[in-house]
Simulated scan of single mutants.
Amino acid sequence: MAANSASAGAVVRQQTLKNSIHCSGVALHSGAKVNMVLHPAEADTGIVFRRTDAAGGSEVQALWRNAVETPLCTTLVDGKGNQVATIEHLMSALNACGIDNAVIELNGAEVPIMDGSAAPFVFLIECAGVETQASPRRALRVLSEVSVAEPHRSASLAPGNGFTVGFEIEFPNTLIGRQEWFTEVNESAFKRDIARARTFGLAQDIEKMRAMGLARGGSLENAVVVNGHEVVNPEGLRFSNEFVRHKVLDSIGDLYLVGTPIIGHFQGERAGHALTLRLLHALFAEEDAWEWTELTVPAVAPAAGAQTQPARAVAARA
């Protein structure tokens, strides 16, 4: 995969896809078959979702201000009320692979679930190739801690070096139990430790979700199903702690709704998509808690794919 290459201190440039690439699959919640095409986009476009099936056309930028709280997934809504749902796994792959600009075309209201992880989307990005653009890449640097909470769950962003994520989950009386995990987020770590972790659910909740119009496309081919202290999937787990790793994967995707990489630490305690979105609203409401900063190549080269460090803050605000 192409990567930014420059001498120490040089400005890191934005990236897009080198070529368009197509895939198709089942939508997790609606059960509909969806065709999707990832297209290159001009610098400063951001990640834009375009629904080709919507009357009069539909485009919406993947930003926190365009997201709405929906059960069990991350959803964008355009000015006409058209939705694009279940974007979190694709957004996670785009974030980790350093794709700043892309147009995602869909002929339906939901991103295909593929195998329930981000690995198929990483593969698509690798097949399309990555192209460096002329414009500098910026990031959001967290300057002071911001947190949101409700009974038994919380989410926070705090200052840090690079981008790190910690997460804790607890599902009593199941195989999942209590799991904690912490990771630095960079491209190589994402591919190795995070991308393959699949979405999951409890067998006892499946009928209730389908009655709500959710998980109609769910199967053992795109989700891990836990029945008490057993994994129903014949192939078992990809990681012993696949459940908490998937929550980290979701968080990386949801946090990309900032519109840039984040320099800071995210901590989730039994948090979900809705709470993470509320955290982003809280962050941007605190103007002194963050700043934009351009990214430069570090003076000492890190391991391949590691997160570049910030240069100087610029005046622009969201």
Rank of each mutant, 00 (worst) to 15 (best):
L63Y: 01
N19K: 09
V48L: 11
F49D: 08
E42G: 08
V68G: 06
I87P: 10
A55F: 02
E59Q: 15
D78A: 14
I47Q: 11
T75P: 11
S30H: 10
R65P: 07
V60D: 14
Q61M: 11
I21L: 06
L90K: 03
R65D: 13
T52E: 15
A55Q: 11
R51C: 13
E88V: 05
P71Y: 15
S30R: 04
G81A: 05
D44M: 08
T75R: 12
G25D: 00
T45V: 03
A43C: 09
L90V: 01
D44K: 14
T74H: 10
A43Y: 09
A41M: 08
N19I: 01
V37W: 00
L76D: 11
L72I: 09
G25T: 00
G57Y: 00
R65G: 07
S92I: 06
E69C: 06
G56H: 07
P40Y: 00
V84S: 03
T45I: 02
N82G: 03
S20T: 00
G56M: 06
E59I: 06
G46M: 11
S58V: 10
V26Y: 07
V37D: 07
T52R: 05
C73R: 13
L76R: 07
V60G: 14
H22D: 09
A43G: 13
S58Y: 04
V48E: 10
K80I: 03
S92L: 02
P71L: 13
A85K: 00
A55M: 03
G81K: 02
I21K: 00
V26A: 07
V60H: 10
N66S: 10
G57D: 08
E59H: 08
V37T: 15
T86W: 04
H29K: 14
H22Q: 06
L94G: 02
L94A: 03
E69S: 10
G25N: 02
G31P: 03
V77Y: 08
V68R: 09
R50K: 13
W64A: 15
V84F: 07
R50D: 08
V26D: 01
L90S: 01
T86D: 04
T52Y: 07
N66I: 04
K33N: 06
K33R: 10
A27Y: 04
A27C: 03
M36Q: 02
N35P: 05
F49L: 08
A55T: 14
E59V: 08
T45Y: 04
N35H: 05
Q83N: 12
T70C: 06
P40M: 07
M36L: 07
V68K: 11
D44Q: 12
Q83W: 12
L94C: 05
T74A: 09
R65K: 15
S92M: 04
D53G: 05
T70A: 10
L72E: 13
S30M: 11
V48S: 10
H89N: 02
N35T: 02
N19D: 13
H89F: 04
M36V: 00
P40K: 01
S58A: 15
N95Q: 12
P40G: 00
Q83P: 09
C23P: 01
G46R: 09
V37H: 01
E42M: 05
T74P: 08
V60F: 07
H89L: 03
A62K: 00
A67P: 10
E59T: 14
G25H: 01
A62T: 04
R65Q: 15
H29C: 14
V60N: 13
P71A: 13
A93S: 09
